[in-house]
Design a protein around this nucleic acid. Structure first.
Lengths: 213, 213
DNA sequence: CCCATTTTAGAGTTGACATTCTAATTTCAC
DNA sequence: GTGAAATTAGAATGTCAACTCTAAAATGGG
């Protein structure tokens, strides 16, 4: 009866080390990629003294990767949702943009999107991971869509605006921006693509305003 | 005197096997990622019978990766340049969009951008590879910019249009679209983001036309 | 055709990494 | 406080992959 998802009877201490392992693995896999992260690296980073811990809480590396994906999904949504749920104006949309840019700048443009880098590495190799990530993007996309929908409800956007399609485009643009940021080590591409998308959305602005330049 | 770039005296046969190795490596690294591609896999795919070939033409795996990046850069630009150099109307821009979408569809949405997947995997780990890829993106970006600039020269875009920034945004959006295509196994996100960007550019269209809802 | 150089074989080495096993220790419910 | 379950140690295994080495075949200019 090996419980796959890893949630069996966990004592407080058990949950603590389990969490420590996931967090450490997530960090390392984000920095170096999944394949380049060894179980020994994870042990050190999580400050566990034996491989047996790792295999006690996760059957194998793949299962650990599942947990990492879930962890990163929660992290991303926890950051994004508050910003997106209160989209009531273009100012707040801009604030979201600025916040995203600022996060990247704060980490010196290293590492792209926590989900995007996993998606790039795993989508073609691990079908399970791919679906898990697809679901994560689905949630994220929903959050963006809800934000834009609320903007439309508040009369900031006209009726012709399609929140679903705009949300998908915006999220997709963000992924590209984060990838390019990681490669260029500057946020110019990210800014350019997000600004362009916001300009695109502004076509639907009820209070007409000229896009930048 | 080990020539780093791998170009020393190559006989015809030598160049042939070298090319075969690079092409095979590029294919495998595109499908599975760099780390997951073993030298033995490459041998088999390139139909060379000994590891010594590989190390005869390339000092080590990293050098081979360099060659792969160069190879993929040429491939991408060879496909993109013809489409981009003749941007004279929104129809041709749309044709570019359709061509990109079609390519992804033709390969069942597996594998994202040949450069993007390398960038995602290597940018944070291999500084040399990162710069090489950055340069590749630079060339690509230039091609897009020139296309948009020529549209402006032909009077399709107004003077306020900024081809440089639009090009960067467009290329960045494309990267996101390709990543999402790879993850979702459909081209919807790619279409949405490219259409949105074209709508954005259409703001500068001299012959006014309403964007698709 | 001959010799220097290039190219290919193929076995071998080395180290790393995922995973396992046994047994000791700790925790917690009762 | 005791016993079953959870947690941790730590050594060990087996595989796999990057890379090396020696020597044999092929090539091409003179």
């Amino acid at each position: 009866m090996k419980s796959d998802t890893g949630t069996r009877q966990l004592t407080a201490k058990g949950r603590a080390t389990r969490d420590r392992i996931v967090a450490a693995a997530a960090g390392l896999m984000y920095e170096r990629g999944v394949a380049a992260t060894t179980t020994e690296d994870i042990q050190r980073a999580a400050e566990v003294k034996s491989p047996s811990q790792l295999y006690h809480y996760f059957g194998d590396k793949r299962t650990l990767v599942q947990a990492v994906i879930q962890y990163q999904t929660e992290q991303v949504l926890a950051f994004q949702r508050p910003l997106l749920s209160r989209l009531d104006s273009f100012e707040s949309l801009q604030a979201w943009r600025d916040a995203v840019v600022e996060v990247q700048r704060a980490r010196n443009c290293e590492g792209g999107c926590p989900l995007g880098s996993l998606a790039a590495e795993l989508s073609d190799v691990d079908p399970g991971a791919r679906e898990q990530l697809m679901a994560a993007y689905g949630q994220w996309e929903d959050a963006v869509r809800d934000g834009l929908a609320s903007m439309r409800e508040r009369g900031e956007l006209d009726a012709a605006a399609d929140p679903g399609r705009l949300a998908l485009a915006l999220l997709t643009a963000l992924q590209g921006g984060l990838l390019m940021t990681q490669n260029r080590r500057d946020t110019l591409a990210l800014e350019a693509v997000l600004d362009a998308m916001i300009d695109r959305i502004r076509i639907h602005a009820v209070t007409q305003r000229a896009p930048a330049s």
